[in-house]
Simulated scan of single mutants.
Amino acid sequence: MTSTLHWHAFAYTGRGIKSDAEIYAGTAPADFPPLVVADWLTRRTRDGRIPHKHLFTEGQIHEAVSWLEAELTRYPPLDVESFPISSRIGYAYDRLKQKVNRDISWGYWSRGERYVARALILCSGHGTPCR
């Protein structure tokens, strides 16, 4: 964990669910994305660490957006023709540079018929560890 402003990058690719009821009933995959965006930070591995894929600082916005772009390219969304990857990436870059509401949390069905979730969750690091 770090004491400066940073984003945790999370990824899930796998089985989708039919409704939120599967999460409440415990029948969704154990690593399925949480319903509340901030809950990505409450997840822990067996050794107590946050199971993020990458950690990006405020000075690494370009790298964070590049990670998202690579993931979207690897698992293209079904609706990529109506909402191109380049538009999504432009949105992500602008969002991460804002002063508030700087999280990115995308969930979609891929052309490969898998549910894909990618998230960049901001952690302020103001002297306290990430939740």
Rank of each mutant, 00 (worst) to 15 (best):
F56N: 03
G26C: 08
G112D: 15
G59K: 08
L122W: 03
D31K: 02
G107F: 02
I61W: 01
G48E: 00
G16V: 09
G16I: 05
G112R: 14
F10R: 00
L55I: 13
A117D: 02
A30W: 03
A117W: 05
E22D: 06
A25D: 15
G16P: 08
F10L: 01
F56K: 07
C130K: 07
I89C: 14
Y24H: 11
W109M: 11
P33I: 01
T128G: 07
R88F: 09
T73P: 08
S110F: 07
P76M: 10
M1G: 14
T73E: 15
Y91A: 09
N101Y: 09
L68K: 12
P33T: 03
Y93R: 15
H54K: 14
P129D: 13
Q98L: 10
E63N: 11
G90A: 07
Y115K: 02
K53V: 06
V37P: 02
G125W: 12
R131G: 10
A30T: 10
R44H: 05
Y75Q: 14
L72V: 05
G112T: 13
G125Q: 06
F32V: 04
T2K: 09
P33D: 04
G107E: 04
S82E: 15
K99E: 13
A21V: 10
S19A: 14
I50Y: 01
E22M: 13
M1A: 15
C123K: 00
R15D: 09
W40C: 04
F32G: 02
